[in-house]
Design a protein around this nucleic acid. Sequence first.
DNA 1: TATCAAACAATAACTTTTATCGTTTACACT
DNA 2: AGTGTAAACGATAAAAGTTATTGTTTGATA
Lengths: 142, 142
Amino acid sequence: MMVNESKPFRELCRENGIAVTHQRQVLYETMKTMHGHPSPEEVYAKVKKKVPAISLATVYKNIHLFVESGVFREVSMHHGSVRVEMNREPHHHMVCSKCRKIADIGEKELGLVAKRDRLPGGFLVERYAVDVIGVCASCQKA
Amino acid sequence: MMVNESKPFRELCRENGIAVTHQRQVLYETMKTMHGHPSPEEVYAKVKKKVPAISLATVYKNIHLFVESGVFREVSMHHGSVRVEMNREPHHHMVCSKCRKIADIGEKELGLVAKRDRLPGGFLVERYAVDVIGVCASCQKA
DNA sequence: TATCAAACAATAACTTTTATCGTTTACACT
DNA sequence: AGTGTAAACGATAAAAGTTATTGTTTGATA
């Protein structure tokens, strides 16, 4: 029998105080092999091949866990619904990773630089949208 | 009788080849008075006070129209579902405003600068997430 | 090995968004 | 101003995404 190659995952679970379950481990290993920016559905589809009985809810719960633990990261903060921008001034956003509130910050105030209008792969730039992820003042207190 | 103050909106509609309807106009005027980053539900709630019979579907359809026409802009591109990041390297994203596909671009390749770890309002910075909005190569052809 | 909390599957419920469809309205053209 | 037609509307069903509930199974610890 092979030496157990799953030690890093067991440690990861211990660090975060969560149990090492079969589903969790397969989920983790599967996700590690994926590329790009998969949705929960896509992860579910792939994991189902190895654990056909797995539930979509389990996938969601564990993706949440992984993201909260910092094992994986989510592509730009998800706000549940579309949001419309009402601020006409050039600005960017500060998004709180705890409460997900969005606050504006003026482009100059943020002080980024270096805009190109063409990027590798022939991508034609319209604009830069910067989300500064962090913790807002009120969440820092709590 | 007052002079019709709605000329700019009529022009806006003409430019985009859409009809000037009562609902559309109230929606536009209402949204112009809003602040922050409202969701379609929030817009609906506010517009309903002026046009109680308006349908939520109308709100959605017109928000889409406005966004497509560039009258309003949406806060960071909405991808319908949560997306998990699989690229471990420090990088940012190029998001196509036509097909909404996300492609990675290395932090160094993009060449932004000027990171602060504290922003106005006491916001504690964890990281910068840059979405470069634009048109991908394949959408440029089409 | 027995205990108990945590995790699981199944599925209902909820939220957000889109599609359908019959009716009404705006606009171009008399 | 009157009329035809396509666009827009309201109502609502359906789809998509996510979360909550519940009874059962499993993992961690004694």
